[in-house]
Simulated scan of single mutants.
Amino acid sequence: MPRPLLRLLGLALLLLGASHPTWAEAPERIVSLAPAMTEILFALGLDEQVVGITSVCDRPEAARDKTRVGGMSNPSLEAILALKPELVVMTTDGNPKHIADQLQRFGIPIHVFTPRRLSEIPGGIRELGARVGAEKAADTLAVELETLLKTPPRFAAGEGPKALFVIWPEPLIVAGPGTLIDDALTLIGYVNIAADAGTAYPRFSVEEALRRKPEIIFLGLGHDRDNPRTQRLLQRLAPAGLDHPGRIVSVGDALYRAGPRLPAGIVEISPGQGFEPERADR
């Protein structure tokens, strides 16, 4: 028998004996194909129901003992089916559509998390909570974020300090328009100097960044001051006075994912968290 047919036969055999729940039933076996989805599911109290995650799902700590089914962009269909999931949770931000199509062909229910903007996340959390039978916990998470979204900005629109959020120091890659990070900066009242870029995560030259005169720079997770790449970036920023305390702030990865740590990420870049950005004369 040709190898492709053997592979299909094997996949079909994995499904024998598996019963798929109706949409009215809360799934007892869930596979998460994105780090943010894993974080949300655990925050909803579904630790026991999550049976599989991807190789890049690293939070919370308790999730690291779950079975890995491959990468976010290239999960193993065989590994997913072997876990006999009653629901596979996916996202449009990183999971390929063909994986969703393949799962549906095998009769595996899926839930696709579609929100990508900060204002859309509470609704997405509630939809996921309804799908997995955790409406109350989902509403609690959603309300926490909605409360921050309703908070008046620290600075008036267009009047806040010019900010740059560094995703990678060398080459210099920053957070541009359409990202959760840009939304968070805007929410607080910062002026993202990369907001007019043509892509979500544009590559900047240090000279271009300096030309735009940022007044505060956020260094994303992993770019500590002792990192050689970060050191070289700081040295090139020094002549502009940006190496002074409070002008460059190291932060975590909470704003990188559409998950339950978003409120903490917003607070982390807010003035008063150990720094107070000052506006230069304009």
Rank of each mutant, 00 (worst) to 15 (best):
M1R: 03
M1L: 14
P4F: 09
L9T: 08
G10H: 09
G10A: 12
A12G: 14
P21M: 08
T22P: 04
T22R: 10
R29D: 00
A34E: 09
A36I: 02
A36S: 15
M37I: 08
E39D: 15
A63H: 10
A63R: 10
A63E: 11
T67L: 11
R68H: 13
R68L: 15
G70E: 12
G71T: 05
N74G: 11
M90D: 07
M90P: 08
D93Y: 01
I99N: 07
D101A: 14
D101T: 07
I108E: 07
P109K: 11
G124R: 00
R126T: 09
R126M: 11
G129P: 08
A130M: 04
G133T: 01
K136I: 00
L141W: 03
E144N: 11
L145R: 05
L149W: 06
P153F: 04
A156M: 07
A157F: 01
A157R: 06
A157Q: 08
P161W: 05
P161F: 08
A163P: 00
A163T: 03
L172W: 05
I173F: 12
T179P: 11
D183Q: 06
T186C: 03
L187E: 08
L187P: 00
Y190A: 06
N192V: 09
A195W: 02
A195K: 13
G198I: 09
Y201E: 12
P202S: 14
R203T: 15
F204Y: 14
V206R: 12
E207P: 14
E208F: 07
K213G: 11
P214F: 06
P214H: 05
F218Y: 14
F218E: 02
G220S: 15
D226S: 15
N227F: 05
P228N: 10
T230R: 03
T230Q: 03
L234Y: 05
L234D: 09
L234F: 12
I248M: 13
V249F: 04
S250Y: 11
G252P: 07
D253C: 04
L255N: 02
R257I: 04
R257F: 15
R257V: 07
G259S: 14
L262T: 02
G265F: 07
I266Y: 05
I266Q: 03
I269M: 05
S270R: 08
